[in-house]
């Protein structure tokens, strides 16, 4: 029978078209705009690498980059470890496991804006729920969103609360894929729970863990809606991370050229980090 090699491509065509029009083309334009001075209204003027020079010598950019890295470096391990922990607990034979899985997964289904606003009400210093409850037992209010360090801690806690369920589900799938025969063999050899976890579970989960780390790293580096609705980037920019910074430069200050250049730099950072993680883990091989 003759192979009809064009059939798969025909099926791919709709997706390719939509991807091309709504992702590919704008991305190409974005690269072009990053070499121009453009206010979004008049015609772009080509200025070569000027935007990149401006960005890389701007102390505000370097501050923001440092801030974003600290946030990501803190939030990724906490999220991965708590997701793994929850997954491990909820795949054991405990009562109501499915109920708890649902509970931990629920926040994933709420939009970031809603989560941010909800926690904003909970954490407000003067009118927030937590400080009100604390006041009932005569504890001084905590400056959740008022103090730069506390605001960052608040954002980290809320991020983990919002996303741990998603990564937990991935880990649960990974855990259920590990063949029970491995554990049975270990039991025969008299291995302890700890040994089983570090010698079987953890190595077998390596590809999944790598996936979770890369996914969460990229996701948290691009965090935007949740933080904007929770703290608005404040106090004094202390929680303004990469994407909000880019948005401000583009849409609030009207510098679309610089904004596009910032997006291109973000893309390069993400690509480099993903490559490094891939190399370190040897392509995620077990």
């Amino acid at each position: 029978m003759k192979t009809r090699s064009w059939v798969p491509y025909a099926f791919l065509l709709p997706n390719m078209l939509i991807f091309g029009i709504f992702v590919g083309l704008p991305a190409i334009y974005g690269v072009y705009y990053s070499f121009t001075e453009w206010d979004g209204i008049s015609s772009p003027v080509f200025i070569g690498l000027e935007n990149f020079r401006h960005i890389l010598t701007d102390p505000n950019f370097l501050d923001m980059l440092k801030r974003t890295f600290i946030y990501v470096v803190l939030v990724v391990p906490f999220t991965v470890i708590s997701a793994l922990g929850l997954a491990w607990l909820l795949t054991r034979k405990i009562k109501f496991a499915n109920f708890f899985r649902t509970i931990f997964y629920l926040p994933v289904m709420i939009s970031f804006i809603v989560i941010g606003l909800m926690w904003n009400w909970i954490l407000q210093v003067d009118t927030g729920l937590i400080n009100y409850l604390l006041s009932l037992i005569s504890i001084d209010p905590i400056n959740w969103l008022l103090d730069p360090v506390m605001a960052n801690i608040s954002v980290i806690i809320v991020t983990i609360w919002a996303r741990v369920g998603f990564f937990m589900v991935i880990f649960i799938a990974g855990l259920q894929n590990i063949s029970p025969t491995l554990y049975e063999a270990a039991d025969i050899d008299g291995a302890s729970d700890r040994v089983k976890f570090f010698k079987i579970t953890f190595p077998m989960l390596k590809p999944i863990t790598l996936l979770v780390i890369i996914l969460s790293f990229i996701e948290f580096f691009k965090t935007f809606a949740l933080v904007v609705s929770l703290t608005g980037g404040g106090p004094i920019n202390s929680t303004k991370y990469y994407v909000q910074y880019t948005y401000d430069v583009g849409f609030n200050q009207g510098e679309f050229g610089v904004g596009s250049a910032l997006s291109l730099i973000l893309f390069i950072i993400m690509a480099v980090i993903t490559l490094i993680q891939w190399k370190i883990s040897d392509g995620g091989r077990v």
Binding site: N120, Q124, V125, D126, T127, N143, W144, L145, L146, A151, T231, G232, G234, P235, I236
Partner: peptide, 20 residues
């Protein structure tokens, strides 16, 4: 003036409207 407005994003309209 409560610092929570300028530093913590508290909504001033709610503070007034709720009688605080």
């Amino acid at each position: 003036i409560p610092s929570s407005i300028w530093l913590g994003g508290e909504n001033p309209n709610s503070l007034f409207r709720s009688g605080q």
